[in-house]
């Protein structure tokens, strides 16, 4: 077993973690209905953020329309419950199944091409689903689709499920990052040429990254359908994608706690919008986009990428002496 030295930094981390845990437990018991709702929304975006983080932060396929996977998950659940009359488990699986199919197409494009082409393919596929969801009769068009009331859960149950999903996604992210798959994903992002010459099959890993990420987003989407009990094609809206990217960009792309830190923006946004008159509602998106641009231009590494949050570097200088000795031999 490795012995971990107990530092001051570790105790600060522990204190923050305990305070956060206490607050999260207190919220459903003592919090107002509105605050619980905001809490659920924050967990949704943390989970989505982890999904985006896996695809774009870890494996470097830049997903600009992540709402695609989320929306398909939501429609998988709502269509199954409302139109086919089956249970949520089937809805969840159908959502995941549909997502895997779409992710396969996206992954095939992404494995052949990268950068601009991948982005455009994603936008194209996203537009197909957005338009169809808003026009077909089975999805209820722009009026949307409502779920049967028998599946309605109480706020507290929803809160606990949302928290569980967010924590699960975070753990999943870490498990993948520290496994063989994660190493390959990061290798492909950092230097695909070298990775290929070291024997990793770029196509396979890229498709796998899209598949995993889509499944993660699908679960969140299915939960959203149950949470809202009614939704329309707006689940595919670009604002959703924008918020997902925001949460990660502000928190720190590729960093496991990035979405947790970045989700503070979702809280801010909810309170600001609550306080603003409705005619200013569109300005909140303007603020979002401005923050996004400023972050991307000035601090691409995000808050968690700051020096104070980095694990302590091994002092290369100290080992340099070894080299010096070696050279004099």
């Amino acid at each position: 077993m490795r012995s971990v030295k107990w530092t001051k930094r570790n105790s600060i981390y522990l204190a923050v973690l305990l305070a956060l845990a206490a607050f999260l437990i207190y919220l459903p018991i003592g919090g107002s209905r509105r605050n619980i709702n905001i809490g659920i929304l924050v967990f949704i975006y943390i989970a989505l953020g982890q999904s985006w983080n896996l695809l774009s932060g870890m494996s470097g396929l830049f997903s600009i329309a992540h709402a695609l996977f989320y929306g398909i998950g939501a429609y998988g659940m709502s269509l199954m419950l409302a139109r086919a009359g089956s249970n949520p488990l089937v809805g969840l699986l159908v959502g995941i199944g549909a997502n895997l199919l779409v992710a396969l197409i996206v992954g095939m494009v992404g494995s052949k091409l990268s950068g601009l082409y991948f982005t455009m393919a994603l936008i194209g596929i996203h537009s197909i689903f957005y338009t169809l969801a808003g026009q077909l009769t089975i999805t209820g068009g722009w009026l949307g689709i409502s779920l049967p009331r028998e599946w309605q859960l109480t706020r507290k149950e929803l809160y606990i499920i949302a928290l569980a999903i967010a924590v699960f996604m975070t753990v999943l992210f870490q498990v993948i990052r520290s496994s063989r798959i994660g190493t390959m994903f990061v290798a492909l992002k950092e230097n695909p040429q070298l990775a290929a010459s070291l024997g990793s099959d770029i196509r396979k890993w890229r498709i796998l990254a899209v598949l995993i990420s889509a499944t993660m987003a699908s679960v969140v989407g299915s939960f959203y359908a149950i949470y809202m009990m009614a939704h329309n094609a707006e689940v595919f809206n670009g604002t959703v994608s924008l918020r997902i990217m925001m949460v990660c960009m502000v928190g720190g792309v590729g960093h496991i706690f990035g979405p947790w830190v970045g989700s503070a923006l979702i809280i801010m946004d909810e309170y600001i919008r609550g306080a603003m008159p409705t005619e200013f509602a569109s300005l909140s998106v303007v603020i979002y986009a401005l923050v996004l641009i400023v972050m991307a231009l000035l601090r691409p590494q995000g808050i968690m990428g700051s020096k104070i949050f980095q694990p302590k570097e091994v002092d290369v200088r100290a080992i340099e002496n070894l080299d010096a000795r070696e050279k004099t031999e």
Partner: peptide, 17 residues
């Protein structure tokens, strides 16, 4: 190599072959 990885992980990419 892989700039953002640790040395050990970089070499592990090769070992995973």
């Amino acid at each position: 190599a892989f700039p953002d990885m640790t040395l050990e992980e970089s070499v592990r990419v090769g070992a995973y072959c």
